[in-house]
Design a protein around this nucleic acid. Structure first.
Lengths: 351, 351
DNA sequence: CCTATATATACTCAAAGTGAGTATATCAAG
DNA sequence: CTTGATATACTCACTTTGAGTATATATAGG
């Protein structure tokens, strides 16, 4: 056992090549999520109103210093703690993007390439000392993702007409039936057209679709061809844009969290120590952007052994008081801890 | 819309700090998987027998050059193509590790920190011009992961006794009941002790457990305390070790692939254009390291609309000829394409 | 040709899980 | 003490799932 295992010829060649001009800086970006007042919120750093363009929202981020921190996650926790004083519960790596600014060609300063690693972090903290950062409803950036009050108007009024235009555009450029079908299929699967039903977990795919159709402002910023220039349409802003690839990272966070909540008990990271089942449900619904069936939700949560009664009652106004529960942390050690594998409620009857 | 959105004070500070000594090199590592002869195999680059220690297997890897390639995945595909001439079908990013060599302190050359991005790639190619690389059964590196012939002997004979030792060791160091329970719970959940049942998707967790218990050779290489030095035990090698963190990346690939196969139709990337349902089943079983119920597997695959008949029959020897099927690529456009969500067969009766 | 053997494929059935609803309990306000 | 609101319990049809039995079609050997 040597500390320096021998290298093969292929490896040596590769490593030698590395030392050349391939150095990059790692940017650690965090989508820090909390839920309050039944709305999912993310932490954004303040934008500079003084400059032109109004300034775009940004996720908090910091560089990774390999000399100081052993792992990426340690590095992330360290500067988040430093900058926001927030206590992060759950932290999960999302994805590493090599094209942070998506290569807006003009803006590509040589010798300073940034690769961004996106993280999802959950917190219930509402620490007020956020150093100027603030909580922002994540649906402001993705207005089409919140179906709790029915299908968002922006889909039928803006998104679908624009996407249909984009589909037929390709029909002109490449008139073969196959590739036109591709654009149409992407639209169908993402936004649930003709019989395909809405999938809350496709948040990332939807954003990526809008980006490649040139319908979000980031696409124009990056100089994508035809971005926002659809003939005969005055394209309204589809959600608030963000700096660099931050909205893409946020979309990744949404997709991952919406999926994860269904098979791992992560929702509890967002809850106070004691909560009613309805409060838990409202938190889940906020994240999913969907309603779930109340009675079945109870059954699910209780049968899975995820919670235990506290005996205390909630002193809410309105109706019969609800019992407060707490998360049974032991489930994590009992079995491969399940999540809230729930199907959205189809009837709109049950809240 | 400017190409250079304004930066906030927080951001500017952070970016300035980046330019200092935080440069790293990105290493792209690929776990390239194929299945042949009912065994999952990964591509490894040859190790150098001339040096001491016998030389450890390594995954193929190459540096990311941001000037040359727009995205990480493009960079990966490019050098894999160059080095192996393999045609990669499915490619998926796995994880980004900041501690490639897990900081074996002596070996940490300053100024050349490598962050490794792991990829999973699937191919059915058996291209012979592999430039010296070769296919290697992945269970050679993880002998405890193959349960197709029943529980692997290495678990009861070596792993569990060593882990029990490790559990009781902590009992001495920190005699409080709680943290002893932690080690025990980890062992239970990972290796399916007292009633907990084996979970094929926990491959990464199991490897990480063995690493932190100091039971794999990589732990010794990295200078972990007490690695491989459990009192009174002559620790046999638990699977073939690999260079750097490559076995960790491979374990990540196994976990991800085993999970993914159940909810996305990725298994077909490993199949020839036409195949019998039993061949498909054998491929899946090879990946999972488990048997599935044959009749139910058929029902599942057919009902999900994942395949269509070709009419041709397999000319195999043995019994009634099986019909050949092909993957219905259209499912990808019809609905949120499902996978082979299968449960392992509990009775050992059905093959 | 007949039979043993091996594999492929079809069908059955009970148990568990799921979606959606009805019924009942318990509070506050008027 | 009724109304309205919410909490919680229970029901029921339907689907899915795990596991088995039954039948079909090949080869090999007498």
């Amino acid at each position: 056992m040597t500390a320096n295992p021998p290298k093969t010829s292929v490896q040596s060649a590769a490593e030698a090549a590395m030392r050349a001009d391939k150095a990059v800086v790692i940017g650690l970006n965090a989508a820090i999520v909390t839920v309050s007042d039944n709305e999912p919120k993310i932490l954004i750093v303040p934008h500079d109103e003084a400059e032109d363009s109004g300034g775009w929202d940004a996720l908090p981020f910091g560089p990774f210093n390999p000399m100081q921190h052993r792992t990426l996650e340690i590095g992330l926790r360290s500067w988040v703690q430093e900058q926001t004083h927030l206590e992060l519960g759950y932290v999960e790596q999302l994805y590493t993007f090599g094209d942070r600014g998506r290569h807006s060609l003009e803006a590509d300063t040589p010798g300073e390439h940034v690769v961004s690693v996106g993280y999802l972090a959950l917190t219930r903290g509402h620490d007020e000392d956020l150093q100027g950062a603030s909580w922002s409803d994540w649906y402001r950036h993705f207005p089409w993702e919140d179906w709790r009050d029915g299908k968002p108007a922006i889909i039928d009024q803006a998104i679908l007409p624009l996407l249909r235009e984009w589909v037929s555009r390709q029909a002109e450029a490449t008139p073969d039936e196959l590739s036109r079908g591709k654009r149409r299929d992407r639209m169908r699967l993402c936004f649930g057209v003709d019989g395909v039903q809405w999938d809350d977990e496709k948040a990332l795919e939807r954003y990526e679709l809008l980006y490649s159709a040139g319908l979000v402002q980031e696409a124009a910023r990056d100089g994508r061809p035809n971005a926002l220039a659809l003939a005969g349409h005055n394209v309204p802003p589809l959600g608030r844009p963000m700096q660099f690839d931050h909205r893409r990272i946020l979309a990744t966070a949404m997709s991952r969290l919406r999926a994860k909540i269904k098979y791992r008990p992560v929702a509890f990271e967002l809850m106070p120590p004691a909560f009613t089942l309805y409060e838990l449900q409202k938190t889940v619904e906020a994240l999913l952007g969907l309603h779930v069936h109340k009675q079945n939700f109870r059954r699910l949560v209780e049968n899975a052994g995820l919670v235990e009664r506290t005996g205390r009652m909630s002193t809410r106004t309105g109706g019969r008081p609800a019992e407060q529960f707490r998360f049974r942390r032991e489930v994590l050690n009992e079995r491969p801890a399940p999540g809230l594998r729930l199907a959205p409620s189809r009837s709109r009857a049950n809240s």
